[in-house]
Simulated scan of single mutants.
Amino acid sequence: MAGELAENPSRARHVAIIMDGNGRWAVRRGFARTAGHHRGVERVREIVQAAPGLGVETLTLYAFSTENWHRPGYEVAVLMALFRRYILREVGEIDAQNVRVRFLGERERLPRDLQRLMTQMEERTAGNTGLLLQPAISYGGRSEILRAARQLAAEAAAGSRDPAAITEEDMAAALYTGGTADPDLVIRTSGETRISNFLLWQAAYAEFAFVEECWPDFTAEQFARLLAEFAGRDRRFGRVAAAT
């Protein structure tokens, strides 16, 4: 199967997922919203394990947005604790699976101990050559673009860059995702049909899939079906299909 996927140019090499609906999943079952976040972490493990066998080379997971900082303090605290727990519990298995981790987002806003754990996980897995896992924590697409623009502007002001010569490639390289191919497929769970400030630059020509299931109910089997459906799409990137 892996050989067939490697020869298939229409496979989704980079998949990004907006993991939405944890709170609603819990409330519908009479649980506290935080119970949904706990279940969502278990789902992350399953999808990460399944991704390489499905031909995915990069998996970007929207875990906590810049807007999520406005949620109730207790819920934010639970999420921070879950991020710590995930790193401590999973880093060994992630490393053993040859997965490389790179965190995206404004990590300076996160608790210092969590920042240290994130750096340690990145350093431990830096030499791995399998799946690139990019958890987006304290991430916002607009702030990412603004940050990159300020960086390029500062270089221009310092005289190290000609502002008239700045290219799209320069901007892409200045983003958190610099050096990574743009996503082929963006998936959002929970029935919502918006992008929510996620990978605004990178997803310019991505395909989208919106599913009704909340993230805790999103399975590896459904992931595989979405990837198979993606392989049948005609991606023209603004071009006209050749006449037959």
Rank of each mutant, 00 (worst) to 15 (best):
206 A>Q: 04
227 L>M: 07
20 D>I: 03
49 Q>W: 09
149 A>Y: 08
132 L>W: 13
63 A>S: 15
42 E>M: 06
155 E>S: 09
83 F>P: 03
46 E>F: 03
198 F>K: 03
79 L>R: 03
164 A>L: 14
188 R>H: 09
103 F>T: 13
56 V>K: 10
26 A>K: 08
178 G>C: 02
116 R>Q: 14
128 N>V: 01
188 R>Y: 06
96 A>C: 01
136 A>R: 03
188 R>V: 01
113 D>C: 04
99 V>H: 08
153 A>I: 10
132 L>A: 10
230 F>P: 05
233 R>G: 05
244 T>Q: 10
169 E>Y: 00
126 A>L: 11
98 N>V: 01
148 A>S: 13
181 A>H: 13
85 R>E: 15
129 T>G: 11
131 L>G: 07
188 R>A: 04
208 F>N: 02
24 R>E: 09
151 Q>D: 13
67 E>H: 08
67 E>P: 09
65 S>A: 05
98 N>W: 08
135 P>I: 00
32 A>D: 14
88 L>R: 15
242 A>C: 06
132 L>M: 13
84 R>E: 15
170 D>V: 05
179 G>Q: 11
157 A>K: 10
93 E>L: 09
134 Q>I: 00
230 F>K: 03
11 R>M: 06
167 T>M: 00
21 G>V: 03
220 A>N: 00
58 T>F: 05
220 A>P: 01
87 I>D: 05
219 T>E: 06
206 A>S: 15
80 M>A: 08
159 G>F: 08
30 G>H: 06
232 G>L: 11
150 R>F: 12
